[in-house]
Design a protein around this nucleic acid. Structure first.
Lengths: 224, 224, 224, 224
DNA sequence: CATGAATGAGCATTCATTCAT
DNA sequence: CATGAATGAATGCTCATTCAT
């Protein structure tokens, strides 16, 4: 969607654009945006340095495009999956699990999308990362609908809470990525975060033993 | 010439070192680590470029020293304050409030300590940030002691949960900083995070109306 | 398909070559040789970048070809016109007027032919610009024939003087072009140069009244 | 006068600035502005590449500074010399001789001041070359004062004529420089230009014998 | 201890030219 | 003949770091 500097059209060309984006994910994840050389990305992509500038205006634009492009796919996948669930609690649980799944299976992409974007936010304060907003929007919608439906506490503030949950997910992801998988499995983290959310958000909070069954039906199991 | 009472070691040298660190906080916060020029910091500190290298090995070392130095003070303050509280819940609440207080009143320092450190983590993968570990350690201790004391759920994993909570605090701080205070007040965020923790962590969760007074005593008020 | 009457050789190929040369005049005049991009010329000509290399060896060759090509036409026109005049003085006057006429009516071409050629002379020291020599040759011939005929002073040095006059014309043209016509009209400049050639500057060399009529007949009027 | 990027002060520093300017004259004259590499100039000056940027904002600024700086000295020398002469004719003659003297003894400087400046004028159309205007101003003043004094024809237009004479000098200089002294001596060219100015070309304007002595006194000898 | 002029390695970006289609 | 995507050599400029003063 975002128009590149002077984007060639044919499908083999798009293939090249794709290869550059993939290479950028690898290189940005490994070296960080500022320490990554454009020529590193070119080599990784198997193209000449100059070719990158046929598809992206400059190094910044490459990062932004990468972000927009990859987020688009992720958002679509998330939406597809979440739309199959009805209860806000299930959907929140699913969101948490999917986010950490992504981190587990595409750690480099995850790293770039969170850490690197944040780091470059310094020099692109104006770049509002619309796709990131959209991603958070999914979370906001879940929280808001849950609040309205009476499943979540009425006093929650979705705009803030979405950041709280995202921050938790992001930090946990970062540690897992950079600790190189030593400390815990993403599934553990997912359980921990979900538990925090579940027992903190639900209106039916004080489930007397008798009421537990009902909550069980409404909230996904803690250990999936 | 006479040393001011408040400054324990105001020798010219330490004074200069301190000025450089202060300047570094400003400049790193404003431009980001990679975009900050050493000469910017020198100018801000009112010293010559070369002087910085009398106190710090290089630009990286300056960031690390800054981190260690400032974290030390923060940790000390946190410990002092937290030691006056006994209940794990109160202490956790206090931790959340203090963290966001710091962000509110020293936003530039907060930004450097979290965002910038993470961004430079790329090129200092080996730097384990001992002071950051110590900071998290405070949180871990609170969680662990609460778990042991039966105040927090027995199935929590403090090593993970401390990250969850820190991530939530950090993200909320970042948004507040970069949104330039537009969206919400740190106090709101503190309440949101605390509520999430409180109703999700406490074993005494289902307080029947009759038991509420007891919880009130045990958990700090949601709206301070 | 049917060749227009006016164009002697409007085969598609020549047409394209011509369009490229025209485009080059525009672009070189506007941006200068070194700052002009080959792709700019291609766009202006409405051809692909690579097409230019079917007609010209490289960018340098394009400039040289442009020069040779356009000078050829100019020289032919000058010769045609000058051959109709007999007196060296009239012919010199006509040369001056025609040169400045060219500048006035084809300013971009004039700029490229003089300024840009000179600027690129740095990297083509070997290129002797035969057509330019031919152009100057016209002037030399006028001067020499005038000297031999006794119309011009016997002590003039045509090889040098032709440069003097050309330099005067060229500078005056440059100013007129780059000042964007603000300062004076080419006709004024023509008069000034011609007067200098005809009479010099000094007042104290007044031709006796009696001889004036003869000079008047021999020299074209100062104000044409 | 023109403030450089961040000019160091002490005399040894100015020495370096001077060496860079000298080197720039050599390199610009030899390769032309666009083809000259900043690193060439640095090597020629015996400094590091970066040092140039301590004294000049960028490559353009180096050329402009060079121009302003060298022209200043030249203008001062010209003024000093010309102030010792009273008659406008003598002064004009002297100007011509001095200009070509400069070309003869500092050919590289002359080349840069005329050819290279013109060539870069493309990308600094806004740079009005104040020192060049000042230089021309000397010529304008000579012409104007001569006109007012009745020594020069009353119908001359000094603003145009100064360009005519400068153009003649410049072209003649260029040829002499690039022909590498083969064709003629600057003194010859000076004589030719001066004769043109003094007497024009036409033989039929013979000053009566009686008036010659007065002219002889007023105008410098044709053959010095 | 302090200085800040000098250094030079490092890198993003441009653009003339090529060649597969 | 024509195209224009791809190439990659070339270079201006920056800035962390040093060291003579």
């Amino acid at each position: 969607m975002a128009a590149p500097a002077a984007a060639p059209n044919p499908s083999p060309a798009n293939d090249k654009r794709e290869r550059i984006l993939d290479a950028a994910v690898q290189v940005f994840a490994q070296r960080g945006f500022f320490q990554a050389r454009v020529s590193d990305i070119a080599r990784e992509a198997g193209v000449a340095d100059g070719t990158i500038y046929l598809y992206f205006k400059n190094k910044d634009d490459l990062l932004i495009s990468l972000f927009e492009d990859r987020m688009e796919g992720i958002i679509a996948r998330f939406r597809l999956e979440l739309d199959r669930l009805s209860g806000p609690a299930e959907r929140l649980h699913r969101f948490i699990v999917m986010h950490l799944d992504l981190v587990e299976h595409q750690p480099q992409l995850a790293e770039v999308l969170t850490v690197e974007l944040r780091q470059s936010s310094k020099f692109m304060r104006e770049y509002r990362a619309p796709k990131f907003a959209e991603y958070l929007g999914i979370l906001v919608d879940i929280l808001e609908s849950g609040r309205v439906a009476g499943v979540f506490r009425p006093d929650i503030e979705p705009r803030i809470l979405c950041r709280v949950i995202f921050g938790a997910l992001d930090e946990v992801s970062l540690v897992w990525s950079s600790a190189r998988r030593e400390k815990y499995a993403p599934a553990e983290a997912a359980r921990e975060i979900w538990n925090l959310c579940a027992r903190g958000l639900l209106t039916e909070a004080p489930p007397p033993a008798s009421r537990r069954p009902r909550r069980r039906r409404e909230t996904p199991p803690t250990d999936p």
